[in-house]
Design a protein around this nucleic acid. Structure first.
Length: 232
DNA sequence: AACAACATCAACCGCGCGGGC
DNA sequence: TGCCCGCGCGGTTGATGTTGT
């Protein structure tokens, strides 16, 4: 049985106060990051070490970039998600000043919805014919492999963590396999090109969508990952 | 104006990994 | 080699804000 990370009775929870923030900032300025388990006591904070770490990493760090995501950042997130799946820390690592939590929240609240609206399955970045043409619900293609299947919206029960990461990667990378890029040698040390203005961006896809989904289907074909097409 | 529904995001929780012993 | 501990990650929750009726 794992010990709790902190003494629950002696810790504050919920929103951080300005005083707590200041204590944490002052302490880290003086002593540096790390030693999160002992930091709260040393800093005079009645907080769990994990909570301190999260607060620092997500909000108090001086290099945090706050505010709306730029279009190119959004494009990059979509492409990286197509490659990496829900590896938010890896994705955030490619976005200077952004945190995994921020990227994750932005994905769930904005991008995911947007892709769904566009008829793209946010889990595997494939055109979802069920969504794009509801009348074809019983004629969905077999583009989605069994590992990636299940309702993209509703079947979100957590797989066993041991394989969850692999599953996620294979989900996301399955279209890479289709594109003969291969997932076995998926190099996580990606070199991402800054989206060229002429490339096909999601916003452009959205515009195309306004001109008619069927036309877009013709353009993409039926077996491509639209978001990965941006990756050329 | 009041309420409901929806969207957003800060924060928490549980788990796995890796390093040290 | 196995255990323990600390850290980091991803999923989820809940409070708050916004929009619609």
């Amino acid at each position: 049985m794992r010990k709790p990370c902190c003494d629950k009775e002696d810790t504050n929870k919920g929103a951080w106060t300005k005083q707590e923030d200041q204590k944490l900032i002052d302490y880290i300025r003086a002593h540096g990051e790390g030693h999160w388990r002992t930091l709260p006591k040393a800093a005079g904070l009645h907080r769990c070490g994990k909570s301190c770490r999260l607060r620092w990493i997500n909000y108090l760090r001086p290099d945090i970039k706050r505010g709306n995501f730029a279009q190119d950042e959004e494009d990059l997130i979509i492409r990286l998600h197509a490659l990496l799946g829900n590896r938010w820390s890896l994705i955030a690592g490619r976005l200077p000043g952004r945190t995994d939590n921020e990227v994750k929240n932005y994905w769930n609240s904005h991008i995911r919805r947007k892709l769904i609206r566009m008829g793209i399955d946010p889990n595997n970045h494939r055109l979802n014919q069920n969504l794009s043409s509801p009348q074809n619900q019983n004629t969905s293609t077999d583009l989605i492999t069994s590992s990636a299947s299940g309702s993209m919206e509703n079947n979100e029960s957590r797989p066993s963590k041991t394989h969850a990461d692999n599953d996620r990667v294979s989900d996301a990378a399955s279209c890479l396999e289709d594109e003969a890029l291969g997932s076995q040698n998926l190099n996580l040390d990606l070199s991402i090109a800054v989206p060229s203005p002429s490339s096909l961006s999601p916003s452009l896809i959205e515009k195309k969508l306004q001109n008619g989904e069927s036309k877009m289907m013709e353009e993409f074909g039926s077996d491509l990952c639209p978001t990965l097409l941006l990756f050329t």
